[in-house]
Amino acid sequence: MSRSHQLRKLHGRTMEALCLLAALAAVAPLFAFLWHLVSMGAGALNPALFTQLPLPPGEVGGGLKNAILGTLLVVGTATVVGIPVGVGAAVYMTEFARPRMAATLRFACDVLSGVPSIVMGLLAFQVMVRPMHHFSALSGALALAFIMLPVVVITTQEMLHLVPHSLREAGHALGIPAWRIASSISMRAAAPGILTGAILSVSRIAGETAPMLFTAFGNPFLSLDPKAPIATLPHTIFTYAISPYDDWHRLAWGGALILVLGILGATLLSRFILWWHQRGLNA
């Protein structure tokens, strides 16, 4: 073997080692974060976290009941608005729109999905909080619906694209009206994928904090009134994290653990649904 060959090999090995090191560095933050989260959050996890309201600083104990319920309400409302509209738009784009129209709409969605969430919060502030003259759970839900809409459209559209054209053509050959083809053939075939996308988009908005600051606004008390300010889990975690009180830090970590369990659980669930569905198709 020539010297240059050995040199080349050595160089290659070094660079490959560098790549592996990069891969290691890429996964390190996740594990560092999860480790810290579990070690801090596990101690804070108790039934009181779910059943009690926050206490004033200085008093030990209390829970995040208001924030947990608030998040469920706000995210639930956003989902009820965002998912049907998003799925409908995706169906129109794949089943009815002309190619150029569909491409334009898709481009709009791609651009929208890149708009920072805080800007969507500013939009919800201007279209809802300002005319109503007060912060509200509803305006928070609107901001979240704005954020999730492009995500739902993009994932649904991708899933509808996976449905083979021959299925639709078979429907046309049988004289089935276009709306039945869209609803009973395309959407039905893509249903697991659409569900996956929906779960992913819900888990994406569940952790949104920035737009909540000036829409849902937060609330130290229990409120389920859609027209009143409401506490949400991520926003409460933020408030507690930057506070100087140890007990609030503890609550923040407990809340963080709940949020991560929910989000990672949803992400894994959606992957499982897709995997299960694809296994069914292949079998």
Partner: peptide, 10 residues
């Protein structure tokens, strides 16, 4: 998938 606020907390 981890929300920004939690990375901030960490």
């Amino acid at each position: 998938a981890i929300p920004s606020v939690l990375l901030g907390l960490w």
